[in-house]
Design a protein around this nucleic acid. Structure first.
Lengths: 151, 151
DNA sequence: AATCTAAATGCAATTAAGTCGCATTAATAT
DNA sequence: ATATTAATGCGACTTAATTGCATTTAGATT
């Protein structure tokens, strides 16, 4: 009864308890921020958003991001500007992103035909016999932002 | 006769003259370095290699890279480590890279089936109707490096 | 060939993203 | 309630990249 109650409105505590990490204000806020964001967020985005709720230091944010990343709680993503961005790790595993250049909203994709085409292509390479990974990110304008760009 | 002679061993001057840029030692060396590199090179890689031939400053290298990039002489590439890398621009246009994580050697690819799969996939997106671009980079171990990684 | 001038360079200072050491604080096990 | 150890805050530092400014130089002009 009590356990059920706790679970329902404190879902963001799970990853911390699960990995025996101390439940601090900064970490709770960071998780909250990532869980509710429709965008991929940079360390600085996260720093700003966390600090609207609790006082936290950049070094703490960076260290927390590293900790969470190495535990698989969050994923790092490189887009095309060299800035690392973060998202809550997907249970689905391998996937890619479509990012709106207007508002930053992200749609997650994992498309079997594309993966198959990539696999076929990798067999045609001249200098490579082993492909270990790939990055694939798409950029576009989301339906909400299309009107703004029509102007 | 004279023109032919000049062309044969000074191909790297063409882009400079073509764009009415001054032909300096640093720029010649930078072009030479990029033209002969089987790898994508970071600004710092280029700085080091250029300075084996002529004395040049980092600021000069960065400015030259910007100039060349905006004129389409070279292309910028983001891999997965946040460092900008450069290559001589391909006349072929749109293409992707396969990068050896051992030695950095790059194979250039442009695969119609993959592009078609990406195109099909983009039509299935929920939040997007317009896709403007995509990045796709593959990582693997090249045939020369496979033996080293077997150890 | 000597001179002129805009373009390019070298140098130093600056910014931005991220990291690290260390003393202090605070979460949680006892 | 206390002890222990993880986590934090702060400041200094690193690395990639940018910028202002005085000097130099490529190449056009005479």
């Amino acid at each position: 009864m009590i356990a059920v109650h706790m679970e329902t409105h404190q879902l963001h505590l799970h990853p911390l308890k699960k990995h025996k990490l101390k439940v601090t204000k900064s970490r709770k806020a960071l998780l909250q921020v990532l869980e509710t964001s429709p965008q991929l967020l940079s360390a600085d985005d996260i720093f700003e958003k966390v600090n609207k709720h609790v006082a936290s230091d950049r070094a703490t944010i960076y260290r927390t991001l590293h900790t969470f990343e190495s535990l698989g709680i969050i994923d790092q993503v490189q887009l095309n500007d060299g800035l690392l961005r973060y998202e809550i790790a997907h249970e689905h595993g391998h996937h890619h992103h479509v990012v709106c250049t207007g508002c930053g909203v992200v749609e997650h994709i994992s498309d079997a035909p594309t993966e198959k085409a990539l696999h076929n292509m990798s067999k045609k390479l001249k200098q490579f016999s082993v492909i270990t990974e790939h990055t694939l990110e798409l950029f576009g304008i989301c339906k909400k932002c299309v009107p703004k760009h029509k102007v």
